[in-house]
Computed example of a mutant assay.
Amino acid sequence: MAVIENVHERVLSAPAPAVGRLIDRLGSDGDPLWPSPTWVPMRFDRPLGAGAVGGHGPVRYRVTAYEPGRRVEFTFDPKIGLRGTHTFELLERGPESCLLRHRLVATPVGAMRLLWPALIRSCHDTVLEHLLDNAERVVTGTVSRPVRYPLRARLAVAVESVRLRAVPVPEQAALLHAALPRPDLADAFSVRVPPGVSADPQAWADGIFRNPPPVVAALLRLRNALVTPLGIERGDSSAFDTVARTDREVLLGVDAAHLDFRADVLVEPDEDGTTVTLSTHATVRSRAGRAYLAVVRLFHPPVVKAMLRRAARVAVAPPGPGARPEVAVAHG
C-alpha cells in the first residue's frame, strides 16, 4: 500500500493563541480536545513535550517535536504497523481566525495494510472530526456541522470502550452482603469504561434498570404473564427502587413471598477509568420460589449482561448530530 496522507482541518473564528492553549492540553487531565469518553483518552508518561511517550489505547507514539501553542508532532511506534508521524499544527489567518490542522503521513506495514482501509481509517477520520468539533465548540460555543458516526466507528466504540466480564461478587459490596448474607443465587458482572464517564452509582443504577434493552423489557412482561397463575407476585418498577446507598454503592431490590432479591451497583474509579460492577443476590422463601429460581438461573446472566452492556454503551456513545456528547449516564 502507498504512503497514507490523511489531513483534517478546520477554520476557527477565534484568535490563534486561544486555540493554541487547547493544543497544549492534549493528553492532560480534562483535555478539552480529545473526544473522551467516547474514545479511550490520549495519555503520556509525562507532560506534553519532546520525548513524552504514550498514545491512545493500542495506538502508541512519542512526541518528537513540540512548539507550545503552535505545533506538536508524534512519531508512531513501528510495532503498531505504521511508520511515520501525525501532527497537530495551528496557522494564524488573522487577529480573529486560525486554521487547526491534523496531518497523518505514514506507511502501513504488515496487517495494517488491510486494517487501515477496512476499519482504522474510518475510526481515525471520525476521531479527528469529533476533535475538531470539540475545538470549535470550545472557542465559539457551537458546532456548525457536527460529525456523524459511521457504522464502523460506532461498532469500534462499542467493542473498544465496553468490555464486560464475569467476576466474583466484590467484597466491597458491603450493602449487598449485609442485606442478603446467605444467597441462593449470587453472581456479578463488571464493565470498564474510560475516564470522563460518571462515577455516580445512582446514575449507573438508573441507566441499567430504568432503560433496559427492548428485548429485556419484553422478557419482563412475559415473566409477569407466566408467573401469576403460579401464585408468584407480578413484578413492577418498584423492584428496582433504591433501598440504600453510599458514595460508591447503590443497593436495589424487594422482598416477596417467594424470593428476596437485591441488585448492587458498585463503582470504583481510578485515574485510568471506572469499573462498574453489577451484582445480584437472591434468597428463596418457598417451594414456589425455589422452582422459580431454577428457571431464572437460565435467563438471568444474559439479561443482566445485556442491561449492563447497554448502560455502558450509552455512557460512552458518540454524540448525535447537533448535540453535545452528553450521555444517559451523566458525567460526574
Rank of each mutant, 00 (worst) to 15 (best):
V109A: 02
M112I: 11
L115T: 11
W116V: 08
W116E: 11
P117G: 10
P117K: 14
R121D: 12
R121V: 05
S122C: 13
S122E: 14
S122Q: 14
C123S: 04
C123F: 13
D125M: 12
T126M: 05
H130F: 12
A135E: 02
R137S: 07
V139H: 06
G141S: 08
P146T: 15
P146R: 14
P146C: 08
V147K: 06
R148A: 11
R148N: 03
Y149V: 12
R152S: 10
A153H: 06
R154D: 07
L155S: 06
V157A: 10
E160R: 12
S161R: 07
V162I: 08
R163D: 03
L164K: 05
V167H: 01
P170Y: 11
E171S: 13
L175F: 03
L180W: 12
R182V: 09
D184F: 06
D184G: 10
F189C: 00
S190E: 13
V191N: 02
V193Y: 10
G196E: 03
S198I: 03
A199Y: 01
D200F: 07
P201R: 08
W204Y: 06
D206M: 04
D206T: 08
G207A: 12
I208Q: 01
P212H: 11
P214I: 04
L219S: 07
R221I: 01
L222R: 03
R223H: 07
L226D: 00
V227I: 13
V227K: 03
T228A: 10
P229M: 01
P229K: 05
L230I: 02
E233I: 10
R234W: 06
G235C: 03
S238E: 12
A239T: 15
A239P: 01
D241Y: 09
R245V: 01
R245L: 07
